Simulated scan of single mutants.
Amino acid sequence: MTRRTVEEHAAAVAALLAPVLAPRAETVSLAGALGRLTAEPVRSPVDLPLFRNSQMDGYAVRAADLVDLPRTLPVAGVVPAGAPVPAELPAGTALRIMTGAPVPPGADAIVPVEDTAPDGHGVRILAGRRAGEYVREPGSDVRRGDVLVPSGTRLAARHLAALAASGLAEVPVRRSPRVAILTTGDEVVPPGSQPAPGQLFDANGIALDAAAREAGAIPVLRGHASDDPAQFATLLAEATERADLVLTSGGISQGDYEVVRQALEPRGAWVGAVAMQPGGPQATGVVDGVPVLCFPGNPVSTQISFTVFLRPLLRAAAGLPPMPARTARLAEDVRGVLGKRQFRRGRVGENGRVELVAGPGSHLVASMAAADVLVEVTGDLPAGAEVAVIPL
């Protein structure tokens, strides 16, 4: 079995995925656009506001009629929000108006209701207003053709509100990679089922699905195949039809029932090992033009492999900020493994020192949940040594 360094395998994975992770655009509905990255500047097709309307509940008036106050004006009627534009307001009159309702021609100010008092069939104006006060003019928010949202913006609720207010139902965004996730093994059963002796629950399917989403990808298929090559081949064919990238877990070691290796090696895939622990067995290939990235089956190995080799690429493709390694000092002595880079699970304390969580075993999935960083260990290291830590 050929062995790569961590850097060599990371470079091979990056080269394999470069074509499918290259920036591309697609148009999605606003309902599905939250968190997506705009692929180009989005311009308003309209002026906002669309028409002159009232900022307050009150009375539309001519400012020139409010020179001597207080003054009682006859009320010409009422205009609610959503009504057509009223007829021109005669001089010396007021029009009862609701917030958002169209302001009639001739009116140039709104007197808030709290600055008025009923007076018979009219309204007594207690405070004057200058022309333009509380009147929202068309285009005072944004003009037709102005940029509403710049290119490269991660869409939040406030951006979607502006797009919707401008009448846009769709938005061009950077296309997220479509990922298929395939777990394997006769011994694996779904969470919630009753395992038989020798079986275990499938943690990798949900872990890879969640990790892919968190990194900006869209899982389009999550399936499980037994150690039957025909069943795996059928699932793999479905995955390559639907996804830009296929992820597998398990089935690539040197045992007798390595269904992924058996399916991919005849297709020219690289199946080998990386000088790391956990996560030594790795494989890469292309099936029907779709890259396939294969991780080992132990739950911690799968998660570490995703974090080290795939997460940076997916986040970059989705426009998410990187999560680079930083440094911390060990809180304790650590024994390494000769010739391998270990990725130990750790937790950074308030003093900035990193403590290891449990041992190096690839089965310690509960301990993985208790960690907040991966600690890169190369050889024996004393307490206080500076190490690279990768945030989880």
Rank of each mutant, 00 (worst) to 15 (best):
A161H: 11
A162Q: 12
A162I: 11
A162G: 11
L163M: 12
L163W: 06
A164F: 06
A164N: 06
A164L: 11
A164I: 04
A164T: 05
A165P: 05
S166Q: 09
S166I: 09
S166Y: 03
G167W: 05
E170C: 10
V171M: 02
V171N: 02
P172W: 05
P172N: 08
V173A: 10
V173C: 11
V173M: 12
R174G: 12
R174F: 11
R175G: 08
R175F: 10
R175E: 08
P177S: 10
P177Y: 08
P177I: 08
R178Q: 11
V179A: 09
V179F: 07
V179L: 12
A180R: 03
A180H: 03
L182W: 00
L182F: 04
T183K: 04
T183G: 06
T184I: 06
G185E: 02
G185W: 00
D186C: 02
D186Q: 02
E187Q: 09
E187T: 08
E187I: 08
V188C: 03
V189W: 04
V189P: 02
V189F: 07
P190C: 07
P191Q: 04
G192C: 04
Q194R: 15
Q194I: 12
Q194H: 13
Q194E: 12
P195I: 04
P195A: 06
P195E: 03
A196I: 08
A196Y: 08
P197D: 10
P197C: 13
G198Y: 08
G198H: 12
G198F: 11
L200W: 13
L200A: 15
F201S: 07
D202E: 07
D202N: 13
A203E: 11
N204M: 05
G205N: 05
G205R: 00
G205Q: 01
G205A: 09
I206W: 09
I206K: 12
A207E: 07
A207S: 14
A207N: 07
L208K: 01
A210T: 11
A210I: 07
A211T: 00
A212N: 03
R213S: 14
R213G: 11
E214D: 14
E214V: 02
A215P: 02
A217N: 05
A217C: 12
I218K: 15
I218W: 13
P219F: 00
P219Y: 04
V220D: 01
V220A: 05
R222C: 14
R222M: 14
G223N: 06
G223M: 06
H224K: 08
H224N: 05
A225G: 03
D228P: 02
P229D: 00
P229G: 01
A230W: 04
F232E: 01
A233L: 10
A233R: 10
A233N: 08
T234L: 14
T234A: 14
T234V: 14
L235C: 01
L236G: 00
L236T: 04
L236Y: 03
A237S: 13
A237T: 10
E238Y: 10
E238R: 14
E241D: 13
E241R: 15
E241V: 13
E241C: 14
R242A: 13
R242Y: 01
R242D: 04
A243R: 03
A243P: 05
